[in-house]
């Protein structure tokens, strides 16, 4: 496997992923994707197009059946420790208060785990600071089940960022929230990203969300998923809800919506043709 000439931060080359043996479902095929360092990238596509498989591949939780994935120039062979992850389900631990929930990754990831006891005060301060950024100061001692879904998801974001990952992987993190809370979360995430400068891959099926947050939007085809189009979103930062009424914003959302409608249609006809 030849090394990429100009290494992007995340570099996915002709990846195929099949679950099970040779007859199994092909989730992704011919997937190519490049993400620059510090970029905010959104991946959108029809449901079941393998967006979540993409998450597992990039974080090294799943090995591709074919093709290769490089992060920071080196091939991914196992779990990466420089990533943070968050999913739609906040999965906070109900027996830990928010502060201890946010600190969980520090008890696990190297090199922090070795110094966790000694540096506890410092780590606590770091967790408090992060909770404050997302507007959860004063809730450190609360337990997750005392909080609303939006607050839990904010704490979940803090947990995914506490170990200062270089790459943040988010899989529909705001999918279960109501529209108002979701738009509020966009602002919070954008602030965090602008302040901390991590690279972010954001999987979603909400096109407005993708256009609000991302520099680049990758559109995926129906299963087996591959990238069928790439859009740059050149709206100025920080974006606000006002930006979502910008003609350029509306145009890009409209364009992607049409593309996805088309791939869904193609997927259906292919399915029919295969079935008859």
């Amino acid at each position: 496997m030849d090394k990429p000439a100009a290494p992007d931060f995340v570099d996915i080359r002709d990846v195929m992923l099949r679950y099970g043996e040779s007859g199994g479902t092909v989730a992704l095929d011919g997937l190519d994707m490049r993400v620059g360092k510090g970029q905010f990238v959104a991946v959108v596509g029809p449901s079941g197009c393998g967006k979540s498989s993409l998450m597992k591949l990039v974080t090294g939780l799943q090995k591709p059946t074919r093709g290769s994935i490089f992060v920071e120039g080196s091939p991914v062979n196992g779990p990466l420790k420089i990533v943070g992850m968050a999913f739609q389900n906040p999965t906070l631990l109900p027996w830990r208060n928010l502060l201890r929930n946010v600190m969980l990754p520090l008890e696990i990831v190297r090199p922090h785990r070795a110094q966790f006891r000694a540096q506890r005060k410092k780590y606590e301060a770091r967790a408090r600071e992060l909770l404050e950024v997302v507007g959860l100061d004063g809730f450190e001692a609360r337990y997750p089940w005392m909080l609303s879904g939006g607050m839990q998801q904010r704490a979940n974001l803090c947990r995914s960022l506490i170990h200062e990952p270089e790459l943040l992987m988010l899989d529909e993190p705001f999918g279960a929230l109501d529209a108002f809370t979701r738009e509020e979360m966009w602002g919070i995430l954008q602030d965090l990203w602008m302040e901390r400068g991590f690279t972010c891959i954001f999987v979603t099926h909400d096109l407005r969300e993708a256009a609000y947050l991302a520099d680049v939007i990758f559109v995926m085809s129906a299963r087996p998923g591959k990238i069928i189009n790439v859009h740059r979103v050149d709206l100025p930062r920080p974006r606000t809800l006002q930006s979502t009424f910008d003609p350029a914003f509306i145009e890009i959302v409209q364009k992607i919506r049409n593309e996805i409608a088309q791939v869904r249609q193609e997927g259906k006809t292919r399915h029919k043709a295969g079935g008859s």
Binding site: K81, T91, L93, W95, P105, I108, S160
Partner: peptide, 24 residues
């Protein structure tokens, strides 16, 4: 999902058992 989050941080099966499985 939580298992994925922790494994991506380099957690061993024992880590996950001690931090999540047994308390749960």
């Amino acid at each position: 999902e939580l298992e994925d989050v922790l494994r991506s941080l380099g957690a061993s099966a024992l880590d996950i058992l001690l931090k999540v499985g047994i308390p749960r």
